[in-house]
Design a protein around this nucleic acid. Structure first.
Lengths: 233, 233
DNA sequence: TGTCTTATTTGCGCCAGCGCAAAGAGGGAT
DNA sequence: ATCCCTCTTTGCGCTGGCGCAAATAAGACA
């Protein structure tokens, strides 16, 4: 597989990059394939590389000492991840990255980005915008987890995942397909597979979604928005 | 009150700044006093200024539509807050900032920092380090909220607050004083004042802390660490 | 010193959501 | 077509923690 440097411009941080810069990054990258369920890196490893997902989907997760997991973020094509190491020289990955589907990704040494940041202001800005986005998302999700009931949280989570990794489904207007197991949704909304299953079954009875093995099809996004805002019942 | 530019070097972002730069920031700042309980800015306001806390303590909080609050971060002297506006041009504050004590703070226009970032690489790096720190803290707290029991979460919260805003108390070795109400702790750990009260009373019976009105004195930090790691009982 | 306000404690009842366990369903491999 | 593995569903019982309400304590202020 060959990566055209100009493809990199789909990465938000590289939106403003020159062609030369893009070529430079591609030349200094390694293409890595990761099987479904396998890992890019583990929480605690030295953050030697950062990644750009070329195809597939992945998730960032964190485990507590007892091994319970939470999903921090879902990663789609042309998103950058594991880039904190470029900012802190001795950094370790604060989370684990796992492939949700068979993935290909460009791996680039953190120091390479670190050095590039020194001389390319646009990269600094792009990276900071990315970071402020994460901060805001994490703050919101934290508040949701602290203050909202499960059903609402699951609705918010499903909607967020739909925006991040959903595929418009069929010929239909607003149907969105999500390749996620109950486990994935539970980890992303801070609950259990049992509760997710019960809630999804209920939604299915109400015609809001269609579910299947490792699959959620959103038939009525507006209905989910109403639930997420507590406007239903 | 007069601010000596060199005091600004205590702000992590300005660690590497030149004297000239520091003076420039001070000259372009307004000194704002905020009474205890009053607000620097509200979630949703246009992020026109960022702040550097000169004295006092403050907190960043977020409210959900129903008005329930969660504490996102506690701010101590010489910490910068509300700086996201410098990165996104049309930004609004994603959280509310409220004084925990009478506060004085330097207010500087976001665009001033924005412009300064263009020409001063050290600022970019400082700000990014700050951001990665927040991201990691929020990720951890999110995981804790999702996977840990309340008592453990309260222990983790109290220890974190002790590190961020605690004052070494008395002549004693490891006693730390926190000027926080049950409400503050509840909002910071994602629970209720009732549960915080019950847990603190229990800890007091076990000799780990001493409590008072809007006050927590940690007598045995190691004991709290044990609780936070689930090593007690 | 007495009054008022606000913070804290604690008894009590309740229920949302957890998690076991067992049954059911989907899909890949041979 | 059948086996097998993994994912999902759902009944059931349980409990951690919520939150009301009432009592108590600690300051603030006159």
């Amino acid at each position: 597989m060959k990566i055209d440097p100009s493809d990199l411009r789909r990465v938000s941080v590289f939106k403003e990059a020159t062609d030369d810069d893009l070529s430079l990054f591609v030349e200094n990258s390694i293409l890595r394939m990761v099987e479904e369920g396998e890992f890019f890196f583990f929480q605690g490893d030295p953050a030697k590389y950062f990644y750009i997902l070329v195809s597939g989907k992945a998730k960032l997760l964190q485990s507590n000492p007892a091994g319970q997991q939470v999903n921090l973020r879902t990663i789609n094509e042309w998103q950058m991840f594991g880039a904190l190491g470029a900012v802190r020289p001795d950094a370790i990955y604060p989370a684990t990255a796992q492939a949700l589907e068979p993935c290909t990704a460009l791996a680039i040494e953190s120091v390479f980005l670190h050095d590039a940041l020194q001389t390319r202001p646009y990269l600094n800005f792009g990276l900071m915008q990315l970071m402020t986005g994460y901060i805001q998302e994490m703050q919101e999700r934290y508040r949701e987890l602290a203050t909202e009931r499960v059903e609402r949280r699951i609705a918010l989570t499903v909607l967020r995942l739909a925006a991040q990794i959903g595929k418009r489904s069929g010929g239909e207007e607003t149907m969105v397909e999500l390749p996620l197991s109950r486990q994935d949704v539970a980890e992303a909304s801070g609950t259990t597979i049992y509760t997710v299953s019960r809630v999804l079954s209920d939604w299915e009875r109400r015609g809001l979604v269609e579910t299947g093995r490792e699959r959620v099809l959103i038939k009525n996004p507006h209905g989910l928005v109403q639930i997420s805002e507590g406007l239903d019942q």
